[in-house]
Computed example of a mutant assay.
Amino acid sequence: MSREEVKKLFHKNIMLIGFMGTGKSTVSSYLSKWLDLEEVDLDAMIVEKAGTSIANLFEQYGEEYFRDLETETLLEVQQREQLIVSCGGGIVLRDENVSAMKEHGKIVLLTATPETVYERVKDCKNRPILNGNMNVEYIAKLMEKRRERYLQCADIIIKTDNKSVKQISEEMIQKLIV
């Protein structure tokens, strides 16, 4: 199937969800180029709107304030179609976010083991939820807390461990066009 044929199948948005380090930003960037669709990174939009980092938003105003900005930004994005949207790891914590994502797109859950996530994020300084807890055990605990919620929300699930971004993207497209 050609890129144009695949692109015609998507009238809605492709919403990438999952724990940090599962590949949402990497996959959205690849899909955007491959399918010639616009990529939107919700966290980057929030940073731009707020004029400060997510870590600063958490530190200065708290998680609830950040989640409000996240919902507001998601609702803005959902007014457009045919986007590849990389969502922050906690976007599924609010029912209203999940409803908006399902109404305007397909939700694709990217997963990885705690060990894979740790390897991907261990050198990052912009992961406020891991402050002082950058280890596999803590990541595993956090992932387990959100696991059920992610699974409830997902239309499609893709494991990203030991796969190239091309393999992940091809698997996703195959599952989306069925």
Rank of each mutant, 00 (worst) to 15 (best):
N135C: 11
L31V: 12
L93V: 07
Y30R: 10
E96C: 14
E76V: 04
S86M: 04
K106F: 01
E72P: 12
T113H: 02
E4F: 09
D41G: 10
K163V: 02
L75W: 03
V98K: 06
D68K: 09
Q79V: 06
L35Y: 01
T22A: 08
D36R: 15
K145V: 02
S2D: 14
E70P: 14
S164M: 05
I139N: 05
E39A: 15
K106R: 12
I107S: 07
G132F: 08
A100P: 07
V77A: 15
L142G: 04
G51T: 05
D161E: 12
R147V: 00
E63M: 10
R3N: 13
F10C: 11
T73R: 08
G132M: 07
K33A: 10
N56D: 11
A100Y: 00
E70G: 07
P128M: 03
E119G: 13
D95I: 03
A154P: 06
T52G: 03
E76C: 08
R147D: 13
C124W: 00
V117W: 00
E171D: 08
K12V: 01
L110R: 03
Q78D: 02
K175M: 09
R149G: 05
M20R: 12
G62Y: 07
Q82A: 14
V85E: 03
V6Y: 06
M20S: 07
K175T: 02
T113Y: 01
V121W: 06
D68Y: 00
V27N: 11
L176A: 15
D41I: 02
L16H: 09
P114G: 04
S2M: 14
N135H: 01
N135R: 01
S99V: 10
G23C: 14
T160M: 15
K166T: 07
T26I: 06
I46M: 04
Y61W: 02
L35A: 11
M20L: 13
T73L: 02
G51D: 00
C153R: 01
M134K: 05
L83W: 10
N56G: 06
L69T: 01
R127P: 05
A55Y: 02
P114T: 00
I157R: 12
L142V: 01
E76T: 09
N135I: 08
L37P: 03
Y150P: 08
G18V: 03
I129Q: 00
I107D: 04
V136W: 08
Y61G: 04
N131S: 05
R147H: 09
M1R: 09
V85A: 12
E103T: 13
R146L: 05
L74S: 10
D123V: 01
E4A: 11
S164F: 07
H11V: 08
I168D: 08
G88I: 00
Q167M: 14
I173N: 10
L16K: 14
L31P: 15
L16F: 14
R149D: 06
K175L: 13
V47A: 05
E59V: 07
D161V: 02
H104M: 04
I173V: 13
W34I: 03
E63Q: 10
